Each structure stands twice: as structure tokens, then as C-alpha cells.
Simulated scan of single mutants.
Amino acid sequence: MELFSRSWVGLREAVAALPDGDFGRASGCAGWLVRDLVCHLVIDAQDVLITLVTPAEGAATVDAVTYWRLVDPPTGEDPLDALIPRLAAAYGEPWLLKFHLDDVGAAAGRAAELADPAVLVGTRGEVLTVGDYLAAYVLEWTLHHLDLVAHLPSVAGPDAGSLAAARVALEKIAGRAFPASFSDRDVLLVGTGRRVPTGTEKVALGEFGARLPFVLG
């Protein structure tokens, strides 16, 4: 719960501090501007609110690791991928996007703090505990925080605790650890295809490199 709150607050604070001109810059998500990424975060916050008030019965079907599915890299043909830029553009002014993220995002954060981590909830046709659901989102928030600052070197990135937790999660999804020479940030960027590995990194990865990237959905 603490890691969820820390990673989510850090991401929202980074967005809130952005000057208007940065919303038209590229993000770390291929094909998305910063404004598109922020619009996606609004939808993510809505999903958190919906899931936390969607109780489920029976046994859990996934946990914080198996919640994530490995999918093919996006091609741009997904209707939702195409919808996000149009929605983001409809806001017009960056302050409206900031306001909406702050409003819905704060509500999602409060709902997470008030939720019982042992309660079962349903989402995407699966059942899992609130604790596992929120733990899964630490990876989501941390990756998108990296996306936010990808071309904004003056903006603070994720904190060390969030990066470390996200690395652990990605390594569990991968089924093995990345080389110790990789920083947590590099594991997340290279492991999810946000950055091409250097020659030295390719050597360190060995045969494991052929399995990259891990695209999560």
C-alpha cells in the first residue's frame, strides 16, 4: 500500500510541476506526446477507482505478478491507442488535464488507502486481492513515470524505492534476474523495450536478451 501511494503521488507531482510547453513534447511511449500519456493516467486512475469498488467472490485467479500478461508490441491499430491522443487533444489546455488528473488521481489514492488489502476484487475477467492489485500498479506507475521524463531531463523521475520494487516485479514476470550490472532504471527501460541495450548490455544479457522486450498488458 505504501509503495502504491509513494509511486502514484510521485508521478502526479511530476505532472503537476510540468510547464505547459512540455505537454507537447514526446513521451517515452512510442507515438504518444506527454499530454497523451497524462490522459492515459487519468483513465488508469478511473480504472483503479472502478476496480476497488468491484467486489468479487471465489478464489483469486491472479496475483501481483500474474496480473500482467505478456503481449505483442503495439502496432497503433488498437482503437484505444488511437482514442487516447484524440481525448488528450480535446482537453485543449494543459491545465485542464492537470486538474482532471489531480482530481481523479487523488480520489484513486484515497480509495487505495481506505481499502482492505485482503478483500477480493474483480478486473479484466480476473479475481485478486486489493493488496495484489495495488502492488501490480507500482510497476505501472513507475514505468509511466519513466515515460513522462524520457525527454525531460530536468523533471524528477521515480524514487529509488519505486524503481527497486518495479525491477523485482519485472524480474518475477520474466522468471529470472537481470544482470547485477544493470541499474534498476536500465532494467525497466531495456526490459520493456523502452531503450535498446548497448553493446555491453547485450553481452551481459546473453541468450536472455533474445526474449526481450517484455511488453505488458
Score class of each variant (00 low, 15 high):
L52F: 02
E57H: 09
I50D: 15
D20Y: 06
W68I: 10
V119Y: 00
E2M: 04
T198F: 09
A88N: 01
L148E: 05
A174K: 09
V203D: 04
S183K: 05
T54I: 06
E171N: 03
L143V: 15
D186N: 11
T142A: 14
A210S: 12
A166D: 07
A88Q: 05
G21K: 06
L70Y: 01
K98Q: 15
F178A: 13
F99L: 15
L18Q: 08
D78V: 12
R110F: 12
T66V: 03
K98H: 10
I84W: 00
R12H: 14
L120W: 01
F214A: 02
L11D: 07
P85A: 04
T123L: 06
V119N: 03
A14C: 08
A174T: 02
A82Y: 06
I84L: 03
A210R: 15
A156P: 01
G131Y: 02
Y133D: 03
G24V: 09
D63W: 02
V53L: 08
E140P: 09
V15C: 13
V203I: 14
F178H: 10
S27L: 11
L139F: 14
R211F: 11
L37C: 05
V15G: 13
A56N: 04
K202E: 13
A107K: 13
V71C: 09
R124T: 00
D47K: 11
A210M: 08
A160L: 05
W8N: 13
V203F: 04
T142H: 08
Y133K: 03
L148I: 08
T66D: 04
A165D: 12
L97N: 04
L101V: 10
S154G: 14
D184C: 09
D159K: 04
F4S: 05
G24P: 01
G209V: 11
R194C: 12
A111S: 12
A64L: 07
T192D: 06
K98S: 13
G109I: 03
A64Y: 13
L97V: 10
E93P: 00
R6I: 13
L212K: 01
S183Q: 07
G58I: 01
C39G: 10
D132N: 15
D47A: 15
E201N: 11
T142C: 05
V121M: 00
A169G: 00
L37S: 00
R6V: 13
T54M: 08
